[in-house]
Design a protein around this nucleic acid. Structure first.
Lengths: 96, 96, 96, 96
DNA sequence: CACTGGAAAATGCCGC
DNA sequence: GCGGCATTTTCCAGTG
């Protein structure tokens, strides 16, 4: 086997193991989340409602992020004007 | 608003925030995984094949876990025999 | 092998095969449904909206079925009165 | 209302009704399957075990399909060699 | 009658 | 940008 081959094998192993390590962490976190929902349920909360709240709040955040991305795009399009009163006005008009 | 109400609101807030914190961690880990795949792709690896390797290895682990669960069931079925030479022999035969 | 054993094996085989045959039919129908959605999408329909319509109509049907079950319960509770004007009036009042 | 509107409405109705018809068939088949499990349970079979058998057999079929897909890929990769003795030998070796 | 486990549906992601 | 695929979420029946 060549050195290249060895390196490739070692590199491949490294890739796979890093991924598996992270997948495991992800799974554990998912379990933690489930546990919180379970506790909440035990404490009388409606889990479905909780999930909806979390989802809605996430959607709000995503919408906000999208909005800010648009604002950034406008800012970039406006270039150096963005930090002048005129640029500000343009942005405010565009994002009203 | 009553104290109970305050407590409930605080408790609810705590639940939601803990979940959202964990969801964020989970998302970040997912991003890390994606990044590893991206790097691998950049280094000439076939991402689909890598995913298959990871999935197959996971499948192997799951199969092993299932097998061990069956073994545990057998062990339980054998009950107190399990700590006797006879029980040991039976288990070893069953799990060979 | 005993006759009982044979019968059992044959019976088991029959059970499994009948289930698998039905599962296959079910899968084929699911594929047909997917195809209709695909065609609809190709024709410019919003698949997500279509799915919602189907779900809502199903819910309506279920609600109607539930309603009719309640009516039946009332009718049964009212016994022979159910086919008299008085019974009708009672049912109408109860289901208003 | 325009003719186009009418056509669209009719088309939409057609789509929805075809889907609902198929959904109903699917539900009926699911009920048939449940009935078979119920009968089996009544006859002393372990339903959970039956489900596992069905699932495992399906898994086997899926694995075989996947394997054959890989073989097809190899065959395609071997291209025109496949109808020569050398190509045949290679394929047979690869799929042994 | 609430809970768990399993089927079905929906969503998001990836490559083409 | 779309279809296929994998994951996630929802739904529901069986069970204690």
């Amino acid at each position: 086997m060549t050195d290249v081959g060895n390196n490739s094998a070692a590199q491949l192993r490294s890739i796979i193991e890093r991924i598996e390590r992270l997948e495991e962490e992800k799974t554990n976190i998912a379990l933690d989340i489930k546990e919180i929902y379970s506790e909440a349920k035990y404490n009388g909360y409606d889990v479905k409602a909780l999930r909806k709240i979390v989802a809605d709040r996430k959607k709000d955040r995503d919408d906000l992020a999208e909005f800010e991305a648009i604002v950034d795009t406008y800012k970039r399009a406006l270039g150096m004007l963005s930090d002048t009163p005129l640029g500000e006005a343009a942005i405010q008009k565009a994002t009203a």
